[in-house]
Simulated scan of single mutants.
Amino acid sequence: MNKRLKLFYFLLIITLFCNQLHAQETFINNVNMGYLDKLVATAKRNYPEVKVRQSQVNAAHSTYTATKFAWFDGLTASYIYSPQNSINLATPTIFKGYQLAISLSIGQLLKTPATTNAAYETYKVAQYQQSEYMLSLEAQVKRFYFAYLEAMAELRLRSGAVSDASAAVKQLKYSFQKGETTFQIYNEQLNSYYNQNSFMVQAELATWTAKTNLEELLGTKLEDIK
């Protein structure tokens, strides 16, 4: 085996070994459940849709409270005043002075319980929808958080691969200039280096995208949450 081929195999083994080390990169160990709980709490406090759901619950509760007093709508009170010194021959009255009259609508009275019950059920539905949304929001925050950690792990892996490829290129360039390796081998490693850079750019974009998605739910920057 000639000297050039030995050098090529040596660099190939080094590159594969370094890639294997980087392949062990994982985001599981970076999951911070305490920090994740803070992210969920921040999203539930800041995200506008949460406030919309709370307003719907408040409105439904107000309607329910109002219907509990709806039976007063069927109650009508009036008064009649007959002066003490007047005589009405057309409609003579026995009582003089102020007279209070109260009338009650039986239909309204019978309808009120059903209206109140319907309003109560609407209120409960609003509460259930709010609870469902809170669970959905919490799950979404967790998914975006995990996606962000995954993207950062991928970025670290790609950054390491670029460093390895760069080191290999420098070594091959030195060997090529000394005539110890061919241009083809050097060019192949150079192309690998360019490819690794391209992968790292994609990983950077994925990381920023994942961070943006998460911060959209949080309503603030990740750096502001300690």
Rank of each mutant, 00 (worst) to 15 (best):
N191P: 00
N117I: 08
Q196M: 09
I225Q: 10
T212Q: 13
Q184G: 06
Y194M: 12
A119K: 02
L172M: 03
N117K: 15
S192M: 09
A77M: 15
S105Q: 05
L39A: 00
F146Y: 12
D164K: 02
I28Q: 05
N187D: 12
F146A: 02
G74L: 03
T76E: 14
G219V: 05
L218T: 04
L222S: 10
V31N: 02
Q130R: 11
T181C: 03
F199G: 01
V52W: 11
D73G: 05
T122R: 10
W71M: 01
K38D: 03
R4E: 11
A126Y: 09
K111E: 13
S136E: 13
T63H: 12
K226T: 08
E188P: 02
Y79K: 07
E188Y: 03
L109R: 04
T76K: 13
Y79R: 08
T91H: 15
K3E: 15
K221Q: 15
I102W: 15
I225C: 12
Q189K: 06
Y128W: 12
Q130C: 07
F69Y: 09
A101S: 14
N191Q: 04
K51V: 07
R53D: 05
S131V: 07
H61Y: 06
K124I: 10
Q140E: 14
R143S: 11
H61L: 04
N29E: 09
P83E: 02
F146I: 12
K221F: 12
L205D: 07
Q184H: 05
A161F: 01
N187I: 04
K3V: 10
I28R: 05
K6R: 15
Q54K: 11
T212R: 14
Q196K: 13
V52E: 14
I28M: 03
L110T: 01
L190M: 05
N85S: 06
V50W: 05
S105F: 06
G179F: 08
Q20F: 11
F72V: 07
F17P: 00
N187P: 01
L190E: 03
N197T: 09
Y35G: 00
T182F: 06
F69D: 07
A167P: 01
R143C: 03
T116K: 13
F8I: 14
N58V: 01
L36W: 00
A139K: 13
V50L: 04
N195A: 10
S78E: 15
A147F: 01
C18H: 06
L100P: 12
N88L: 10
Q202M: 09
L21Y: 04
E49M: 10
G107A: 11
R156E: 04
T65L: 12
A210C: 04
L214I: 08
T63D: 13
T76S: 09
R45Y: 08
T42P: 02
Y194F: 15
K96I: 03
L100V: 15
D73N: 08
A70Y: 13
Y120R: 00
T220E: 08
T207I: 06
I14T: 08
Y79M: 06
K173I: 00
F17Y: 14
A90P: 02
Q24P: 01
R45W: 05
T122M: 07
Y193R: 02
K111N: 12
